[in-house]
Design a protein around this nucleic acid. Structure first.
Lengths: 230, 230
DNA sequence: CTGAATTGTTTCAATCAGGTTACAAAACAG
DNA sequence: CTGTTTTGTAACCTGATTGAAACAATTCAG
């Protein structure tokens, strides 16, 4: 699932610009020309990040930020300000209010995307990087290496993510759809049957006999399950 | 973006003074009259530097410093103490706690700014000093020299920092964004693809066969990884 | 035993990620 | 101020990856 960003900005030129570049970078973007409905919408949809213009009519960005920070379910969501003036007041106010970053206008598209990514990186909980060993299989996410029976085996990124996911949830059955949701980057339009293909590819790399899998088992009518081979 | 400084000081006269002079010197300043919310705010905003009064009500500066040092994401942020008494004890305690400097009250504005700048300069991406040898490659950060198979090779500053970073994190995969974060000075304006170009340049200098890298490997879908060649 | 449902396997075109080069701009040195 | 080096970008190219489709094999129900 791609991260979603709520953008509160009254100037349609700017908001269109922002949307265009963020979507280009793989984010889902929702625009709000005013601040009125933002908080209630956000509580329902839980955006990954806010971008607020300091000056928006009706309810300005500063006030909005204050509200977000006071709302239990949104308090932890990062906020980035767009500021027109590069004057002191705005920047400091941003700091005072607990914004996570600010982008002075005018900004380059690249800067916008870079800052958003940087803030998200700062917030994302570091995923388990600890190496994992199951039977004859060793998975090291930090190095992105897979070792099977002492032999280093190359994998593609998707194969690796899928295998890692299986290996960290030993014994559980996952449907194809569940796997798409948790392993694939953009789940949107991928056929569940593609999972089969990847299972096949992984089996070829980890199973002594891919036709008779010892690790990655098929659960007919349900999906797949990873087992620690006996 | 200008560096931000969090100041924890209960005396409003002093804090106003500090703010005024630091802002005049081009820093963004946020004041905290007590220490209560400092750590949580800091995790969010990542100040560039802390200035703590040794004595603040509620939670004193020493305790606060200890907390900062124990917080993963803040441990590397420099801390400067403001101390009223010029007694040794306080000073040493501060230093032992991991403070990076102290400013005895009363202080001149110039001294304040000078010390802040000095500390920041000291913290600016210090290259590790110890030489490093990996296979046929020798890296000496102190001299900023690179020796490959006995031959001294010239590098540019960025090439050297990047190679040094790789060499000190052997076996780990880094995304282009991560590398920009940790090696480049101002990440916001640089395309991730620029990393590719530098990787190419480094390969030309260290690899016997740049088309078939033995050290600096590509990890498709992830980034790059430095390996000790067999 | 038969047919339906499910999974396995292979192939292949489109896409994407990375490599490479040339170049403009910025920084630097003289 | 001028020439040189460094830095980062853009554009183009190539080959690997991805995922769908088509068909084969297996399982299951009745």
């Amino acid at each position: 699932m791609k991260p979603s960003i709520f953008v509160v900005e009254d100037d349609p030129d700017i908001s269109r610009l922002v949307r265009h570049h963020l979507e280009g970078a793989g984010f889902a973007v929702k625009l709000f020309p005013t601040g009125h409905t933002v908080v209630s919408e956000s509580e329902r949809q839980r955006p990954t990040l806010f971008i607020l213009d300091i000056m928006v009519p009706g309810k300005d960005g500063l006030e909005l930020c204050r509200q977000i920070r006071q709302t239990q379910s949104l308090a932890a969501t990062p906020v980035i300000f767009l500021t027109a003036k590069s004057g002191e007041a705005d920047r400091i106010l941003g700091l005072e209010l607990g914004a996570d970053d600010y982008i002075p206008k005018p900004f380059s598209p690249r800067e916008l995307v870079a800052r958003v990514k940087a803030v998200l990186r700062r917030f994302e909980r570091p995923l388990s990087q600890s190496p994992l060993r199951i039977g004859e299989i060793e998975i090291d996410p930090g190095a992105m290496t897979l070792t099977v029976r002492g032999q280093q085996v190359t994998t593609t990124a998707t194969e690796f993510r899928l295998l890692d996911y299986f290996a960290r949830h030993i014994g559980r059955v996952f449907t194809r759809d569940q796997l798409l949701d948790s392993v694939w980057r953009d789940t949107a339009y991928v056929t569940p049957r593609s999972v089969d293909v990847y299972v096949r590819r992984i089996r070829e790399k980890i199973e002594p006999d891919p036709e008779n899998p010892r690790y990655l088992k098929t659960v007919r009518g349900a999906g797949y399950r990873f087992e620690a081979a006996k």
